[in-house]
């Protein structure tokens, strides 16, 4: 990808790449003629796409090592007993990586967390162990048909972990139940949702509903849309 300065009719030159926030890249370009400077900022999805290319924008500063993309990108890579490999330390001085700065396995975990998304907040990334349940909570779980019981159990436990709880009670089940109820949308909110391009609308709807549930709302209103808009703008640095 290149930028062209239409006034000077020249390719803008790559200057540097930086990491203005977790999960984003800022790639700075300079027009060699008028000296105008631009920074292209990527969102988490675009950052992930760039990472998937397996290249370092601006060039490498360390020698390539075998399977560096595979090993850096495998979620369980740190637990994989591959022979000693010092690339991580060496890579720290390289083009900024979007991964694991916070020690989490998802490179965007802190971004998503800052948005309040549940994307990475569903418990331990390395296979959660079962939580303890109160006898009453287990009784309620037992009333659920057995073929869906494991799914419900996993979802309630994920919800409990997200809430910072390690013990599942009846109250916790009630709270979880509240999160699964279908939300109503006012016509105004629906209309505003339709302003969002169709290909990202489902993602946006899901995120807005998650925010609404977090606020204990039963309905998505125009006011909620304003709140979501502010949250999204904050996430994008707007």
């Amino acid at each position: 990808m290149k930028f062209v300065c239409l006034n000077c009719e020249a390719f803008m030159l790559f200057q540097k790449v930086e990491q203005p926030g977790e999960g984003t890249l800022g790639v700075e370009f300079l027009c060699p003629t008028c000296k105008a400077r631009f920074s292209m900022v990527t969102n988490p999805g675009e950052t992930q796409m760039v990472q998937a290319l397996g290249v370092k924008i601006g060039g490498r500063t360390t020698a390539p090592e075998a399977f560096e993309l595979t090993r850096d990108t495998l979620k369980d890579g740190a637990e994989c007993p591959v022979p000693a490999f010092s690339a991580s330390a060496a890579r720290a001085a390289d083009t900024p990586s979007t991964g694991d700065a916070a020690g989490g396995s998802c490179p965007f975990s802190s971004v998503v967390a800052s948005m309040g998304s549940g994307a990475s907040a569903t418990g331990s990334e390395n296979g959660p162990t079962s939580l303890e349940w109160s006898a009453e909570a287990l009784d309620r779980l037992a009333k659920i048909p057995d073929f869906v019981r494991p799914t419900v159990r996993a979802e309630v436990e994920a919800y409990a972990r997200k809430s910072g709880e390690s013990f599942v009670t009846q109250a916790m089940i009630d709270q979880y139940k509240g999160t699964t109820a279908e939300l109503a949308w006012t016509s105004e909110a629906t209309k505003r949702l339709e302003n969002i391009p169709f290909f990202i609308r489902p993602m946006a709807k899901k995120e807005i509903e998650r925010m609404a549930r977090e606020q204990g709302r039963a309905e998505v209103t125009a006011d909620m849309m304003d709140h979501a808009k502010t949250a999204f703008a904050k996430f994008m640095g707007g």
């Binding site: 999805g45 992930q48 796409m49 998937a52 993309l69 998802c106 998503v112 993602m203």
Partner: peptide, 15 residues
């Protein structure tokens, strides 16, 4: 793989 499937799994094929 590291990376959120909810944000955009489009990168997965390229990865």
């Amino acid at each position: 793989w590291k990376g959120s499937m909810e944000l955009s799994p489009v990168w997965l094929g390229m990865l």
